[in-house]
């Protein structure tokens, strides 16, 4: 089997996952303007919710996934209402919100570990018998193919919502100037609540898809979040399209970077790219 088509395919798959993470993160960051570390833990919440419904309760696969996504969205919304919203009303600084978000991350991870143990779990039933497709000389599993398709569908849907709906305009307006949005009658509190719901649900879905592809563990969120954040920074933080662009760029650099070396170098390469961007192009590729 040729290596280059496989590397390209791997990059696209990883890119789709990173893009989803980046999309959710950027949505929240661009609107609420703080670094939501807790968002990372929500990917694990999604994975474990599906684990519970699908594996423990034995519900239908699609019902489980739907419930999982909804639950992550609702938890994201509740966390906003209970933690971030009161702090933002008090005009707390970004640092206070960051620490609060760190608390949310730690608490959610701990709760998952208490409920499900810290053991690595996988969501797929029988991974050995999974269908493998050949595309352009590279191998891709059914799960990965589904991940790709879902990833692209989400990107397109979010893109369309932002471009064409009044909700999308309101979200952009809040990101631009929240105070003025209030003055002109945009219901900022409601809209930010929805942004947390939608952003969290996207992150949760990414976690679920990873759970089917490789597996889940309570602490999976932080490294995923960091990849999403790197994608956002190199693409252009706060810019929804920038995040997606950065995600694929990052995935390609990572996967081609380890062409001749061991896979453990992936993270080192990702952070090296981050540092280079922070030094030489801190606004990312697409400026907001």
């Amino acid at each position: 089997m040729d290596i280059i088509p496989q590397l390209i395919l791997n990059s696209i798959i990883a890119g789709a996952i990173y893009a989803m993470i980046a999309l959710g993160f950027n949505l929240i960051y661009g609107t609420a303007k703080f670094f939501d570390l807790g968002y990372g833990a929500l990917t694990a919440v999604g994975g474990y919710a599906v684990f519970y419904f699908y594996k423990t309760l034995g519900l239908d696969l699609y019902v489980s996934i739907l419930l999982g996504v909804l639950i992550v969205g609702v938890i994201g919304f509740i966390v906003y209402k209970l933690v971030y919203s009161p702090l933002r009303k008090r005009k707390s600084s970004g640092m206070v919100l960051l620490v609060a978000a760190l608390g949310v991350l730690t608490a959610l991870q701990a709760i998952i570990a208490i409920l499900f143990t810290s053991q690595f779990q996988t969501l797929s039933q029988n991974s050995s018998s999974e269908q493998v497709f050949n595309i352009l000389g590279g191998a891709i599993t059914q799960t990965q193919l589904v991940t790709l398709i879902i990833g692209f569908v989400i990107m397109i849907v979010i893109g369309l919502v932002f471009r064409y709906t009044l909700f999308g305009k309101a979200v952009k307006a809040i990101g631009d100037d929240e105070e003025v949005s209030k003055i002109v009658g945009v219901n900022t509190e409601n809209i930010i609540g929805w942004v947390f719901f939608i952003g969290s649900a996207i992150g949760g879905l990414a976690g679920i898809l990873i759970g089917f592809d490789t597996g889940i563990e309570p602490t999976m969120g932080l490294s995923l979040l960091l990849k999403g954040v790197i994608a956002c920074i190199i693409g252009g933080i706060g810019n929804v399209y920038g995040g997606v662009l950065g995600a694929f760029l990052l995935a390609f650099i990572e996967n081609f970077g380890i062409w001749h070396i061991s896979g453990e170098w992936k993270d080192a390469i990702a952070f090296a790219v981050l540092i280079l961007f922070l030094l030489f192009r801190p606004h990312g590729i697409l400026r907001k």
């Binding site: 009044l166 305009k169 309101a170 631009d176 100037d177 945009v186 907001k288």
Partner: peptide, 18 residues
């Protein structure tokens, strides 16, 4: 104070948001 990153027409449309 406008929504600087948005087109002129969107600055108006957002006010008309449901």
């Amino acid at each position: 104070r406008l929504f600087e990153q948005m087109p002129v027409i969107d600055n108006i449309l957002v006010v008309l948001t449901e």
